[in-house]
Design a protein around this nucleic acid. Structure first.
Lengths: 250, 250
DNA sequence: TTGATTATGAATGATTTTGGTTGAAATTTG
DNA sequence: CAAATTTCAACCAAAATCATTCATAATCAA
């Protein structure tokens, strides 16, 4: 059996079973264990699957929205760097808005010695904010159980009585045409309003968010500065004349 | 059975059953106890579940049990009884306000099967409210670090857009002349407004609060019904023609 | 065809996973 | 409260899986 043929069969089986053992593949392709191992290594390098002890599994088993804890695991170190960069932008005396979400959450420890006023719609941020003795205002509204974010008309109303020097938002997608997008329209509304109430807005997004679009639009690219961890040449060329991008220094 | 396969199965079972024993998992995955223990340790490290003696439970699972400190708080058992009484007053379809504070907090587990909408200014209540899948609105405003209550003009503004069937408040003092009082004027304002927005208001207060007055007045005695644990003859005589008092049945 | 390149499968020893066993710790029972 | 039971983490040896090497077979290019 030819190599591309095997590869195709492996991917096909994976698609059906979510997870396959080496033995199953040996039988299915009538080739040796060694060969299958080599195939799996290659396919893994091509990001077609993930090797696991004893076989291989699909790369993304679930397409549904990940829970907060899971998000905190993915690309954690990149997010941490981005958050640190974002924190350096904040100066004493600033009034800032911090969006709900994991990346923005990571900003908080880095803000601890600054004399600032923080407004947020993220309930998860509260404990850490008050721990660090920061003056904290919470937006009102409906509690979204999954993300612990405050949304809805209550959130918009109470948000609209504030003005910010700087606004730090998370996003799910950054796309040339679609702009900044996020899955939940309710959360998008809150982000949009916060942005409009702020002198400057910063989007915290790791590289995986680029060229991706989600359901609800928050803003056009030119309306905010993007803070990210890395940017390859292609992306830089595509995006650089549409928006300002700041990359963490490695 | 491959490791990720087992992990997936464990999470899946947990999702259905909320809690699983090691034995159940041993059977479901046809692997040994040791292996399951290792899996649980890993998944716990990844914040996918919480290990408990004999098995594992969902991460944010109903933590019916209160922390030791909470239980050891003053007059706990009285407060618990009062909270239970208060919960019986709530009917399906009600929109209620639950004040920040420990006594009101104890109401929440007893409300779990009711179909209600809750508005609160107590951040500590949120976790338990969302755990029990209640529709929850949070008031906005300044976060008071010590009591985790929301106060200030932001709280008043966002509160004023709601109307309640019932309102449950805590208090520090119940006094014939001073009425219901509390030390912090900011919190008093919130309580006062919540009361005025509600059809009926209930004050949850154990016997130690009677004949005591604090700095800021919330309301006169006749404006709310008092829920308490016991009432000696003297107090009963003094207060009964000024206000309605309901005592827990022993 | 021939020499070079690549793919294959078997063998090796290293690494990881596994299930059983142990005594310690936690929980339940009396 | 103490004994009995259950559950636990730590350890171990056996089994499975792994990466690497090497010789052979297949394929390719000239």
């Amino acid at each position: 059996m030819l190599t591309p043929e095997r590869h195709h069969k492996i991917i096909e089986l994976l698609g059906k079973k979510q997870i396959v053992t080496i033995q199953e593949l040996v039988e299915a392709t009538a080739s040796s264990e060694s060969t299958i191992r080599r195939d799996l290594s290659e396919l893994q390098k091509e990001k077609k699957l993930k090797r696991v002890h004893g076989g291989a599994s699909l790369l993304h088993q679930k397409s549904e929205e990940l829970s907060v804890v899971e998000k905190s695991a993915r690309n954690f170190s990149e997010k941490e760097k981005i958050a640190k960069l974002a924190a350096t932008i904040v100066k004493d005396g600033d009034c800032i808005f911090i969006d709900a979400g994991t990346t923005t959450h990571l900003m908080i420890p880095h803000l601890k010695d600054k004399d600032i006023t923080v407004v947020t719609n993220g309930i998860s941020h509260l404990e850490m904010l008050t721990e660090h003795q920061m003056t904290t205002y919470l937006v009102g509204g409906l509690v979204k159980p999954k993300t612990k974010a405050l949304v809805g008309s209550g959130a918009l109303n109470s948000l609209s009585s504030y003005r910010f020097d700087k606004c730090f938002l998370g996003t799910n997608g950054i796309h040339l045409e679609a702009g900044f997008t996020t899955p939940d329209p309710e959360e998008a509304s809150v982000k949009r309003l916060a942005l409009s109430l702020s002198q400057e807005t910063f989007i915290l997004a790791d590289h995986s968010k680029f060229n991706d679009a989600s359901f609800s639009k928050v803003a056009d690219l030119h309306e905010a500065v993007i803070l990210t961890d890395e940017l390859n040449k292609e992306l830089a060329n595509d995006f650089e004349d549409k928006t300002e991008i700041r990359v963490v220094k490695s």
